[in-house]
Design a binder for these strands. Structure first.
Lengths: 114, 114
DNA sequence: TCAAGTCATCGTATATTTGCGATAAACTAT
DNA sequence: ATAGTTTATCGCAAATATACGATGACTTGA
């Protein structure tokens, strides 16, 4: 039934999961890389780099935008995208915190088993 | 049609996306947290912590296992799970590298636009 | 004004994910 | 042996995700 019980999880868990979801497709990773590698906003060139149809790329851009990872600006007939570094940072920190906390807690316990 | 063109993306992109996918559900985040917080392998208690049916939790455990994030050991009638720290580290590093590289490249370019 | 371009959205098809109950498998304890 | 416990798997239903082509909206330039 796919009853998503997201309400039952903590805000942090949901947030991190949402972040991870935004990165959970190779096309979106590739898009982020492509955008980050430019000095200026990137417009149409993304479609040419990816092995996907224009409409599909647009969909992925929308997802990244929804996650807050990129900003889009309309510039004449084109649209320009660039990384939203604020969210990008937040992502990075969330992941790091998650990994570090897990490890720290585990090390505090000491014992191993498996 | 959902023709997954994963072959068209680089190995790194696919790998990172797969990692992200494993973390893209709050239940799996919660499971990892729960396991990491224990000194010993954890057995049945996971189901009690989560607001999900036993079969659903089992499915999520399988996913995490497939991703290499946790190890499972059969211990009598029970199964025990613990974090696979090797993979866990690899995850952590992959994400960090991705974030740092993107940022470094962008900073090398200097200019902003949006 | 009108053609050409760029990008978003719509509609559609298919694959995957998520979830649950029911059942099976495997061990323990009686 | 048998009943009970624990976990995995199966089967199903519904939601999401992925992908594409077609179409629409909008701007630019002739």
């Amino acid at each position: 039934m796919a009853i998503h019980k997201r309400d039952e999880f903590s805000k942090k868990e949901n947030e991190l999961a949402a972040f991870a979801k935004a990165l959970s497709h190779p096309a979106r990773i590739a898009i982020l890389k492509t955008i980050a590698a430019r000095a200026t906003c990137i417009c149409g060139e993304i479609v040419e780099v990816l092995p996907l149809a224009q409409s599909t790329v647009s969909q992925h851009l929308k997802e990244l935008s929804k996650a807050g990872l990129i900003d889009g600006t309309v510039d004449g007939p084109k649209s320009c995208y660039c990384i939203n570094w604020k969210t990008f940072h937040k992502f990075s920190e969330s992941f790091n915190t998650f990994f570090l906390k897990a490890k720290a807690e585990a090390e505090a316990q000491g014992t191993e088993c498996c």
